[in-house]
Simulated assay, not measured.
Amino acid sequence: MTDNRAAALHRSALVADAHNDLLCAVATRPSDEWASFFRRQWLPQLQAGGVELQILPVFIDEFYRPEGALRRTLRMIEAAHRLAEGNADAVTLCVTGDDIERVIAEGRIALVLALEGMPGIAEDVELLETVHRLGVRVGSVAHFGRSAFADGSGEDAAGSRLTRPGIRAFAEMERMGMIFDVSHLGAAGVDHVLELATRPVIASHSSARALFDHHRNLTDEQIAGIAAGGGVVCVNFFASYLHADTHTLDTVVDHLEHVVSVAGIEHVGMGPDFVREVLEDTTAPCCVEELVEGVPVDCYIPGLEGPTGLPLVTEALLRRGWGEDDILAVLGLNLKRLLLAELGRTGRH
């Protein structure tokens, strides 16, 4: 049966998730509960989904910006270190490709720290070196709005490229071996990054604009540009970015297939952006709608509300006629390959 074949294939796969905001939920707890909360609430979900490689973004809610952004950034980084130390039998924070390879081989989950939007850095580019010392290895420079480094996709009408500090930040990240993430960056900013890039970049959670014209999605030209530079586009599963009305597993597969058709199978991964539990856990019900700029946040792909549902993606791809090697590539091998090659490689300038 297909279900049995899918389950066996998923168990054999290296599953990599390029974007899960679980740190937001962890960091809201008292510090002495960080490790135990992760073990109780999130580790079982990651294991049930087969996740062996997880990028953990540090996202700073609007409430903390601007004055508290750096403090909140450091708190979340500390939470990541403590949850890893308190669950060393199951997870490890990784800072190099060699770390990732070793941790996965030992049967644990490799965690990689990322900064999303960098409001705690602001114009102080030199602080990138600081967070790099603390283990951050992936970063984006804007969210929906305007930052010191660039405009987010919600500001596309401005047509802005990277600012002067943004150009410096990009060069620093390339020098240090931090992977630049174009998700949430405005369209002109993405184009600017692709002009500047001498190393592969990632889109950690972005889908196809050709299928749904939303500013959070990438154009075919941008997808092709990321692939041409050796990067990986990790498709977002957030329903409101995939289709106006139809929210099914097939909608996810449609976006995966389109990105593969443009980028090639070796440049596509998964960035599910599982936010339902995080929003429910961290936000008062009256305020949830404000967080996603009018986009409905109560729409989810049935079964894909969290990591536990990831085997359904494998099943859906098999039903669509995908070959097993292609499924394994998109489930995680492509993202793993990029991180093994680029994480911690310094100084090409």
Rank of each mutant, 00 (worst) to 15 (best):
residue 195 E to V: 02
residue 327 I to L: 02
residue 336 K to A: 11
residue 160 S to Q: 13
residue 292 V to C: 04
residue 179 I to F: 11
residue 330 V to Q: 10
residue 349 H to A: 14
residue 298 D to C: 08
residue 169 A to W: 10
residue 134 L to H: 12
residue 274 F to N: 02
residue 166 G to W: 11
residue 31 S to C: 13
residue 153 S to P: 03
residue 151 D to P: 13
residue 321 G to F: 08
residue 213 D to S: 06
residue 123 E to L: 07
residue 98 D to R: 08
residue 105 A to Y: 05
residue 193 V to P: 00
residue 147 S to N: 10
residue 66 P to R: 06
residue 48 A to V: 13
residue 5 R to F: 01
residue 51 V to Q: 01
residue 6 A to E: 01
residue 265 I to V: 15
residue 307 P to S: 12
residue 127 L to M: 06
residue 293 E to C: 10
residue 316 A to I: 15
residue 92 T to V: 13
residue 115 L to F: 05
residue 111 L to T: 00
residue 102 R to A: 12
residue 158 A to M: 09
residue 25 A to G: 11
residue 28 T to R: 15
residue 105 A to E: 11
residue 260 V to Q: 09
residue 53 L to K: 06
residue 105 A to P: 09
residue 122 A to N: 11
residue 28 T to D: 14
residue 11 R to L: 06
residue 268 V to K: 00
residue 250 D to A: 14
residue 308 T to L: 08
residue 115 L to W: 03
residue 108 R to L: 03
residue 50 G to V: 04
residue 180 F to Q: 01
residue 299 C to L: 12
residue 167 I to R: 15
residue 278 V to Y: 01
residue 292 V to I: 12
residue 52 E to R: 15
residue 297 V to H: 05
residue 226 I to K: 05
residue 332 G to F: 11
residue 300 Y to E: 06
residue 261 S to K: 08
residue 62 E to Q: 11
residue 202 I to K: 08
residue 109 I to F: 06
residue 42 W to S: 01
residue 157 A to G: 03
residue 298 D to E: 15
residue 157 A to C: 10
residue 278 V to R: 03
residue 10 H to N: 12
residue 50 G to F: 03
residue 299 C to A: 10
residue 346 T to Q: 15
residue 145 G to Y: 00
residue 135 G to I: 11
residue 277 E to S: 15
residue 42 W to P: 01
residue 309 G to L: 08
residue 22 L to K: 00
residue 57 P to T: 10
residue 216 R to S: 04
residue 37 F to R: 06
residue 197 A to S: 07
residue 163 T to G: 14
residue 147 S to D: 06
residue 44 P to S: 02
residue 284 A to S: 12
residue 4 N to M: 11
residue 37 F to I: 00
residue 158 A to K: 14
residue 54 Q to F: 13
residue 250 D to N: 13
residue 195 E to M: 12
residue 8 A to D: 09
residue 1 M to H: 10
residue 24 C to D: 01
residue 348 R to Y: 03
residue 45 Q to S: 06
residue 116 E to T: 13
residue 25 A to K: 11
residue 216 R to G: 04
residue 136 V to H: 05
residue 256 L to K: 04
residue 312 L to I: 01
residue 13 A to F: 03
residue 274 F to R: 02
residue 216 R to V: 09
residue 329 A to S: 14
residue 210 A to S: 15
residue 150 A to D: 00
residue 306 G to E: 03
residue 127 L to Q: 10
residue 68 G to M: 09
residue 349 H to I: 01
residue 168 R to Y: 02
residue 39 R to M: 01
residue 63 F to Y: 14
residue 316 A to N: 08
residue 136 V to E: 05
residue 131 V to M: 12
